[in-house]
Amino acid sequence: MMKVNDFLKYTITLNIEYENYFSLIYDTKYLLEARLGADRIFIAKKSIYANCRKRAVQKAVQWFWKEFKGVLGSVHKTMIVDDPHGEVVYDEGFACNDLCNKYLCEETIARIIEESDGELIKDVSEGSENHPPNSVKRAKRRRKLSNVIAPRMTQTPAGTIYYRTTVVPQCSKNGKIIQRRKVKNVKLASKTLEKALREISRRGLDRHETDDVISTEVVQEKLKEAA
């Protein structure tokens, strides 16, 4: 049943292999009106209505599995949904795995790749029924850079704060370095800078930061305490 706000029309196209088309008739008694195209491929079309392409794709996938019950194979190898309203547009926030940008026809794929200026390429991976590939993918994975919010402290785009703590302090004797400093990034539970600073102090993560170069005697004393 079409909802009041499902006023946009989209066309589903099924490219069905010759054997699969007759298996559909024999196994399910479902007579799908289709025409035989090139390379012994049956082509069937169906109109669907939704308020946006993302919703149209969602409804199309649900219809595909409900009607054909897997007889036609994987949906990503059989079905495409057109983009008559120009909703698939490349921008900085373009997500390849967004339903709006999946099950694209070759023409739309070519257009979006051109718009991306080399950022996108066609996704030709096999995928599976449970994990279908996208129509396009990024030529190179974009790195999400962390922001420096304070000395030794960075915050990821997701909001996680890390503190670069000294695990092994640098040690010198008679003006020569006999032990190099080793550091590592420690994930903090705090989500704000103020709370993170208190957490660092409470956990003692900054205990070596006031004086990076310490004497051999201090190192030996710490080793005795640990023993």
Rank of each mutant, 00 (worst) to 15 (best):
M1T: 09
M2C: 12
M2S: 14
V4G: 03
V4T: 10
F7N: 12
K9I: 07
K9Q: 13
T11C: 12
E17H: 01
Y18P: 05
E19K: 06
Y21S: 00
Y21H: 02
F22V: 03
Y26A: 11
K29H: 13
K29I: 07
L31N: 13
L32Q: 15
A34L: 10
G37S: 06
G37C: 05
A38W: 04
A38F: 04
I41A: 06
F42L: 02
A44Y: 02
K45P: 01
N51R: 10
R55G: 05
A56F: 00
V57M: 07
V57E: 01
V57K: 04
K59Y: 03
A60M: 05
V61H: 02
Q62D: 06
W65M: 02
E67S: 14
F68Q: 08
G70A: 02
V71H: 00
L72A: 01
L72P: 04
S74L: 14
V75C: 13
H76V: 02
K77W: 06
K77C: 08
K77F: 04
T78D: 10
V81A: 02
V81K: 03
D82N: 08
E87R: 03
V88Y: 14
A95E: 11
A95V: 09
C96E: 07
C96W: 03
N97F: 05
C100P: 02
C100H: 04
K102Y: 05
E107V: 10
T108R: 15
I109D: 04
I112C: 10
E114V: 07
S116F: 05
D117Q: 12
G118D: 02
L120Q: 05
L120R: 04
I121Y: 08
S125W: 06
E126F: 02
G127S: 02
H131Y: 14
P132D: 03
N134F: 01
K137P: 02
K137L: 05
R138H: 08
A139E: 11
A139T: 14
K140V: 12
K140F: 12
K144F: 11
V148A: 14
V148G: 11
V148S: 15
A150K: 10
A150Q: 10
P151V: 08
P151F: 07
R152C: 12
T154A: 11
Q155E: 11
G159A: 12
G159D: 11
G159M: 11
G159N: 12
G159P: 13
T160W: 11
I161G: 03
Y162F: 15
T165E: 15
V168Q: 12
Q170F: 07
C171Y: 00
S172A: 14
N174A: 02
N174Q: 01
G175Q: 07
I178F: 07
Q179Y: 07
R180M: 06
R180L: 07
V183C: 13
V186Y: 05
K187H: 00
K187F: 05
S190M: 00
A196V: 04
L197E: 10
R198S: 15
R198T: 15
E199Q: 04
I200G: 00
R203K: 14
D206A: 10
D206L: 03
R207A: 01
E209G: 05
T210L: 06
D212Q: 15
V213S: 12
I214E: 13
E217V: 15
Q220A: 08
L223T: 05
A227N: 00
